[in-house]
Write a protein that binds this DNA or RNA. Structure first.
Lengths: 214, 214
DNA sequence: GTCTATACGAGGATAGAC
DNA sequence: GTCTATCCTCGTATAGAC
């Protein structure tokens, strides 16, 4: 049972691209994200969502044609935002393969910690999407994963990383480290998203380092 | 919609400790695990479970007092089995901290791959448990996690691993690597549970290795 | 122990007033 | 665009026959 009263304010805690929506639609999406994260798509009722936004059950259907499309909107937003963050992290900063990979892992980890409510929905409720929507999301995920594979491959190719690395598997492991925290992360815990990002990036560099390397 | 007809055979593919139950109860649990893994607890109906076991909707309640208690039975079984596997892996085999940690990560990874249907339920549907059952499961999880923390600490203390390691965070990362595969693992993929276990164990040793170490 | 039949509430979605 | 009221299906669980 999420709290209402994000009345007009944006919802910087659970919805990154919230400015793209009108105030009511935004309140509904914020409520939906919180409900889905807490109880899952099937464990959430349309009454929960509308009530969390301070509206009657019927009001939801003025803004979304179905519960599933509200989920799709949320999942699409989350995946798009994650992708954008990685592209930005890849673009700026130093350009060595190590620094670049560390920046990607750092950014991806921080994203999942900072937006852990949204990220949780993006990981756990994909199965509730209709097949065509699911396929669309998978395409975005593939592009996101590809960024990591390319970054690992770059360091292997130019000899910065261990030449014996299995690129796909190592990239997958780095993604696992960044994503799995949505399972256990709580914002009232001892670690900030920044600390988690820095730590995970450090682990990433250990994973790709040359055997005898400094 | 899982398939029926595990009629009398055990269900080695989804239920490890299946021998402890009678044949009908076992069929119900097997059906329930498959349904929960595919659609989540709230996305699964008691009709789905009973139908998947070849029974009428009402028959479920002869063997389980509620849908939630069937879930609890499944989750308890899964967590107990994972714990037992780790204790066994810790007990046999060579005794150096590196070998021991590798054996733990290997076993834990293999467990999640081999029993990925069960493991998926154990990771994704915990929130559907009633609070008292949830608390009980958390206790088992804590003991399981503690095994990894102790194994990492042992190598740090005797100088085998990097003395600068943050024991809790590194243990958490190893657990993440083993668990996250339930999100993407498919048995028809290119990797066997054994290959995944060996690879993840190798990553674990990289993560704990001394900086200049061989 | 399993079945058919059913009670009863929950939940997605709509109708129509304001 | 929001509300109240409602439709109607689905879903958990039970009753009672065999």
């Amino acid at each position: 049972m999420p709290t209402p009263d994000d009345t007009t304010a944006g919802a910087p805690d659970v919805l990154p691209g919230a400015d793209a929506y009108g105030p009511v639609q935004r309140r509904l999406l914020v409520s939906a994200v919180r409900c889905f994260a807490a109880n899952g798509f099937h464990g959430t009722t349309t009454r929960d969502i509308a009530g969390g936004a301070g509206l009657s059950p019927a009001a939801l259907y003025v803004h979304f044609p179905s519960k599933e499309l509200a989920l799709y909107e949320i999942v699409r937003l989350g995946h798009r935002h994650a992708y954008d963050i990685l592209v930005a992290a890849r673009a700026d900063g130093p350009s060595g393969p190590g620094e670049r990979l560390a920046a990607l892992v750092d950014a991806y980890t921080r994203f999942h910690a900072q937006w852990h409510v949204l990220a949780r929905v993006c990981q756990y409720d994909l199965g509730a999407l209709r097949p065509e929507h699911y396929e669309e999301v998978l395409r975005t995920r593939h592009e996101t994963n590809e960024i990591f594979r390319v970054a690992v491959a770059a360091g292997v190719d130019d000899g910065t990383f261990d030449p014996g690395l299995d690129v796909r598997r190592v990239a997958r492991a780095l993604i696992s480290l960044a994503i799995d925290l949505v399972r256990w992360y709580r914002p009232d815990g001892p670690e900030t998203p920044e600390q988690l990002g820095a730590f995970t990036a450090q682990l990433a560099l250990r994973l790709v380092a040359r055997p005898g390397g400094r």
